[in-house]
């Protein structure tokens, strides 16, 4: 059961991560075309500023979060790790998972409410390009939600804190 859940979570982690990687690449292209277009031909890429900050940055940050955590890419202090691992019942890892799951659960809950509200109201900015803001907020609950599920599982199936040596952020 736990194994299958891990496979499912791992699948979503990877899909989210691929989207984040694509967003990072698009970000580079957008900013470059905007800057060089402005300089070379006096035509900046209209809307690049908003598209980059409101969508691409949010996607890169929140969709890459679950995979980065699962693969040990989230930096942590490890001064006491070897000692904590000897505590009975993997209490240290369970405690971390419990508290993190609760906090990310709240974050998911509230940010999902916010995103849904923006979808209902179809919040859109005024301007040369009208940006649908609801598509900007949705990435926070998606990324944090997936992370919450993993953290919740780790309360019951604590994993050894991934050390950097074992971690592979790819």
């Amino acid at each position: 059961m736990h194994r299958q859940m891990n496979v499912v979570l791992g699948f979503f982690d990877t899909v989210f991560l691929r989207v984040a990687q694509l967003a990072l690449f698009v970000m580079m292209i957008c900013i470059t075309v905007d800057a060089l277009g402005r300089y070379a031909v006096g035509i900046p890429l209209s809307g690049s500023f908003e598209f980059t900050s409101l969508y691409l940055m949010v996607i890169v940050a929140f969709l890459s979060m679950p995979a980065t955590y699962a693969r040990g890419g989230m930096v942590r202090l490890d001064v006491l790790t070897s000692w904590l691992e000897q505590l009975p019942g993997k209490i240290s890892a369970r405690l971390n998972a419990l508290l993190s799951a609760a906090a990310f659960g709240l974050l998911t809950w509230f940010s999902a409410g916010e995103a849904i509200e923006k979808f209902i109201k179809l919040d859109t900015t005024f301007g040369a390009i009208q940006f649908p803001l609801y598509w900007s907020y949705v990435w926070v609950p998606l990324g944090c939600g997936l992370l919450t599920v993993r953290l919740f599982l780790e309360i019951f199936f604590p994993t050894r804190p991934q050390t950097h040596a074992a971690g592979d952020t790819a």
Binding site: R38, G42, P44, S46, F49, E50, T125, F126, G127, A128
Partner: peptide, 25 residues
């Protein structure tokens, strides 16, 4: 015409554009 002008906000961008300038964020 084609002067690159820094604008803040959506209205500013449309103002610069309508004047013939290039709005830059």
């Amino acid at each position: 015409d084609n002067l690159k002008l820094r604008t803040a906000g959506a209205t500013g961008e449309m103002i610069a554009k309508s004047l013939g300038a290039v709005p830059v964020k």
